[in-house]
Design a protein around this nucleic acid. Structure first.
Lengths: 342, 342
DNA sequence: TTGAAAGCGCTAACAG
DNA sequence: CTGTTAGCGCTTTCAA
């Protein structure tokens, strides 16, 4: 009936039979566990090749209580951020010989009969949780069951001692705003926040405020609006900001996506960038260098962060421990949008 | 020793015991297979909830001979193409209740003792193969073992009857070049090929040639150079083309990435786009609309193609059949780079 | 409508 | 160095 299994795969028994040994020996050879005579090894190996034998992952997992798989939980696949991040995650995963299972929590279809946990001890050896893709209670549940966990671009909920990986957001933002003030002479710098509760946004704003404070510039709440880390929302936010008639000579968009929306809003309002108002972003996504003018921003090591999160996770799985906190440095990328010469 | 299993998960036995039924009944309730009394169902369900039971994927797979997982094989994770494609793939996967396993074939580490097949009947119910991520022999092996397979953005090797999903590349290119000739009056149109053996490039070039032919423009091989679907290579190719002093009034870059490189080459050579030479691409990736001038291109339904490939694959898995060929239509996106008014 | 029991293919003691 | 054997947690006949 099922289209599967019309031509059954070779099993460990087939290999054992063909090589004239027991399945235990085959297992030893395949997994390089225990001593096996040279001649036996080669007999087994040729049987493996001949039969095109590949161990059945489920059987292996069941017997060894290890899945050899790590899971990635994300909210959805979107934006310029995702590709590089996954590239880092995948390469670490493969480098350490694990498989990669991906799960998006976007549309939680609630027509399930029972609350199924998509990723967990039943199908992976540990998971990387991206920002707020999993709610607090689920993180807590996994944590309490001692399931290996690493958080990417978010810190753990209060009281939970879970390793996490993030950018040096505050320092990056601080350096950027310092530069705007010191080298380019701006004093009325607006900030475009990310969505409510985004940690990245929180720390970037803190860096922004610190820079203002360090230069004796009073923080003006009217200059902080919500750009939502997103093009269209940023457009609206900046349009609104301009209509307020508050003096603004530069805009720090919390991320490059919102910078793109901001740029459009400025252009549509007939404002020249950077002559009338300067614009800077954060992340250095692909389109940023192609904008007119090219965008000054802070380059975040997105791929490295992904890689590192998996490395830490595998440390937990294999050694039982990892760095509690991995903060990756950023780099200031100066382009024309801040008024710098080409 | 192992950090795992310090707090063992609930098994089907635990649930059965707590609900006062046999494990067979629990299985029936969970999988909605077979008749179970209303009252029994609710007893089982509350036991499940209470114990936070989640079926062990490996055990399930071993017993049922189904993994409930589909695999994606790609060469590497790169470019603007990847994100949207994966979004489509993931959403179909989730919609049909399958898990998604990803494998990159980029650096085939050959230090494996035996040739391991990363994705196959041992860990997935079927796989989607992206372009040329898997060599012919491996595709053949899987095909011959009747393993469910769908090819994405490539057609099957000769003689193998494998369903595939792709864009209407030829029609898209044909429409684009027709437009350049008919509406914008260009006659000396260059073409930037993709890497050797790329099917997308092959069909796009065919559309380009058809359009020339249909308008009695002789095909000039000097106008076809290799842009490699990549920024830096396209830069070099276009720079070389310009130095040849062959008349060119428009460039059709085989994809948008190479269009970006071409644009830079033109600018660096002091050539105005579109006044001196027009430029068009294919794909409509994110940066294209932000270039100066914004890029005329052909929008390809990248996400839909991903979605569709999984849908076809699941049809094979569940019904044993699928469309042999799914070609998705493209859309002409006119922007300033081809000389069109804003 | 329910339960008993036989595996699924493999790993990991434990013997030899 | 090698073989025997007992499960891993679940699905699926087959009986009741």
């Amino acid at each position: 009936m099922s289209p599967l299994n019309e031509f059954p795969r070779a099993t460990i028994d087939d290999v054992a039979r063909k090589a004239g040994v027991s399945i235990a020996t085959v297992s030893r050879v395949i997994n390089k566990t225990g001593q096996v005579a040279e001649s036996t090894v080669s007999r087994v190996m040729s049987a493996v090749t001949e039969l095109q034998y590949s161990p059945h992952a489920a059987a292996r997992g069941l017997a060894s209580r290890r899945t050899n798989t790590i899971g990635l939980v994300i909210r959805d696949i979107s934006g310029e951020f995702f590709g590089p991040m996954l590239r880092g995650i995948e390469s670490a995963t493969r480098e350490y010989g694990f498989d990669l299972l991906i799960h998006c929590t976007y549309s939680t279809q609630s027509d399930e009969t029972y609350h199924s946990y998509p990723l967990g001890e039943h199908n992976s050896d540990g998971i990387v949780v991206f920002t707020n893709s999993l709610d607090q209670s689920e993180i807590q549940r996994l944590y309490k069951s001692h399931f290996p966990l690493v958080l990417l671009h978010r810190s753990p909920p209060a009281g939970l001692d879970i390793p996490f990986v993030a950018f040096e957001n505050k320092t990056g933002a601080r350096n950027l705003v310092d530069y705007l003030i010191e080298k380019r002479g701006y004093r009325h710098i607006a900030f475009l926040r990310g969505p409510q509760g985004t940690e990245d946004s929180y720390w970037r704003e803190l860096g922004y405020r610190e820079a203002l404070f360090a230069h004796n510039i009073e923080f003006d709440p009217r200059l902080v609006v919500v750009g939502g880390f997103e093009e269209s929302q940023a457009y609206i936010a900046v349009t609104g900001l301009l209509s307020q008639r508050v003096p603004v000579d530069a805009i720090f968009a919390g991320d490059d996506d919102s910078a793109i929306g901001a740029l459009q809003a400025l252009k549509d309002a007939g404002i020249r960038v950077p002559e009338d108002i300067a614009l800077v972003g954060f992340d250095d996504i692909r389109p940023s260098r192609y904008l007119s003018p090219p965008l000054t921003t802070v380059r975040a090591p997105i791929e490295t962060a992904g890689y590192e999160s998996v490395r830490q996770l595998i440390n937990i799985i294999q050694l039982g421990k990892a760095e509690k906190e991995t903060l990756l440095p950023t780099e200031l990328i100066i382009r024309r949008s801040c008024g710098a010469p080409d």
